[in-house]
């Protein structure tokens, strides 16, 4: 059974329509990547799924639950957690408190605990009492991932993990994915970095101007097709 199915989703900010009939399926245990240029609607899609921007049409279902217009806190409790773009850690909270607040309202199957997060990112154990914003960008990203995992979500959304980070740091962050996948969590990554997306994802969706323009397994998609779907230029 499909874990998360997004059907004909539309979203708008006032008069501006940001999503036009988006369809996405996520199977249990799967990792998918959504790629696209700035302004393609990727972040809006993440906000629509997590209930921060209520969709104006279509539907979002997690297994047999309709979450289309559920408020953000309900969606977290249903099992969808997000690592938001720009990390958005709580500056008044320490590293450990940032992690703890992630699991405050939902513990799920209880696989991810403070200890497991420390195992995944040992540096966070060392810096547990530092204010979250005193950490480096990469370490902050680790806190943001750990914070989302603490709710043991069925689906983990990662919005632009690599934004503003050095390549070596990005590699370190993505090195955590195998263990996350092992825990049974399905993942949706939003990336501008096509190479990184192709490496981690089982399937890719390409977005442009609020629409899905291409989807498929990384191996089945040619560079040209992805390039066209990404930039919208035709190689006729």
């Amino acid at each position: 059974m499909t874990l998360l199915s997004i059907t004909d989703l539309t979203a708008r900010y006032g008069d501006f329509q940001a999503l036009f009939g988006v369809d996405i399926q996520l199977e249990p245990g799967e990792t998918i990547a959504i790629i696209g240029a700035n302004g393609a609607g990727k972040t809006t899609l993440m906000r629509a799924i997590t209930g921060i921007v209520p969709p104006s049409g279509g539907s979002i279902r997690l297994q047999d639950r309709d979450l289309t217009r559920a408020p953000a806190p309900e969606i977290l409790k249903a099992g969808i957690a997000m690592v938001p773009e720009g990390r958005r850690l709580f500056p008044s909270l320490t590293v450990e408190e940032n992690l703890l607040i992630g699991g405050q309202k939902r513990q799920g199957n209880g696989f991810w605990t403070l200890a497991r997060i420390h195992e995944l990112f040992p540096i966070l154990a060392e810096r547990r009492h530092s204010p979250a914003t005193a950490l480096s960008g990469g370490q902050q990203q680790m806190v943001a991932i750990g914070r989302a995992l603490m709710s043991n979500p069925e689906v983990l959304l990662c919005d632009e993990l690599s934004l503003g980070l050095a390549p070596v740091v990005i590699k370190e962050i993505y090195a955590s994915f195998p263990m996350i996948r092992q825990s049974g969590t399905a993942i949706i990554v939003v990336e501008q970095d096509i190479g990184q997306a192709m490496k981690v994802a089982d399937r890719l969706y390409c977005m442009m101007e609020g629409r899905i323009t291409l989807s498929g397994r990384p191996g089945d998609l040619s560079r040209e097709a992805i390039h066209d779907a990404y930039f919208g230029v035709s190689h006729a």
Partner: peptide, 13 residues
């Protein structure tokens, strides 16, 4: 006149 700001659902992050 002064704008009515909704607090229940913020438009953006």
């Amino acid at each position: 006149p002064p704008a009515a700001v909704q607090t229940t659902k913020e438009g953006a992050l």
